[in-house]
Amino acid sequence: MKIIVYLGTGGVGKTSVAAASALALARTGVRSMVITTDPSLRLRTALGLADGITEQQVPLPDSEDAGELWAALLDVRATLDEAVRLYARAGMAQRILDHPIYATIASSLVGMQELMAVERIDQLRLRGFDRIIVDTAPSRHAFEILDKPALFADLSSSRKVKLVGRTYKLVSALGLQSIGRSAIDIYAKAEEILGVNLVRQVLDFYSIFYPIAEGYSRRAERTVAMLRDPAVTEFRVVTTPQKAMRDAAFFTSALGERNFPIGAICVNRAWLHAAPEPLPGGMAGDVLGWYSAVSESHRAAVWSLKEAYGTQVRDIQVFSELERDVDGVAALDVLARQIHLPL
């Protein structure tokens, strides 16, 4: 099994590129699955994920194609609920689900989405998919997919949730005297600064939630090991001409710090046609003049990117923007045919 993780900021068409990649791979005869977080309505419809369906096999455009294309929608809250029901200690599931803190962690704990993606990869690995394409959350923090499992592992280690959770139990059972002097000081100060109420609520919640965090981090460790193995996983950055230099700088350094190579930079949504010369008059001339100004700045941006990053990133690909939003698998196919993928 191989994994492709697409990273990128918002609005670059990352989900379309991920889905098109899955399509291109399926066409080579393998079973491929794209895991996406937030596809547009059109894409959702194209992938058969409308109306609450969270996993679907998508018919390939040509009947003679041999592989399978699947698409899955990542629902953070539902995945977390399921994990709580599966992994909580007896009698604790309902207490966790009803806890006031629980209602907010699915949406507000940074990296939750990435963590759920990691959980999903682990499940898919067992189901015999050859290629998994991950479309990460649309933010500059998306590479937290790499950090979060570690954070959760930390959280559930003695230094984190376990300590927080158990200390709380000890504190409530025996009083503060029974834990280390310095820890008491810190807790007392934290309560002073953040508010007794907040600290107690959080401790109370994590004292019942940490077995779930532990389970997550155990499974996440396995998945992160796969993500760390360049023979298994390739990281690709999706960007647009306007953002190419900025995104390349950001992602090469963010991934570099974590010792991950970038497999490819995909410059999506480029306007590549040359305008006819001389320009016609009237409205057509206005529209063409406008197009060619934007198009020239796109070509200049791609050129600068190749100049600056061509030696560092072995693969820089440019995809032209579609005239209309991606509509149906056929339109996805136009993009799929532009993408070069490792087999």
Binding site: S108, L155, K189
Partner: peptide
Amino acid sequence: ILNSSIFQNLVEISPGL
């Protein structure tokens, strides 16, 4: 306090803080 893992974790896991 700021450097203690107890405080850092509390901040990290307190939703919305």
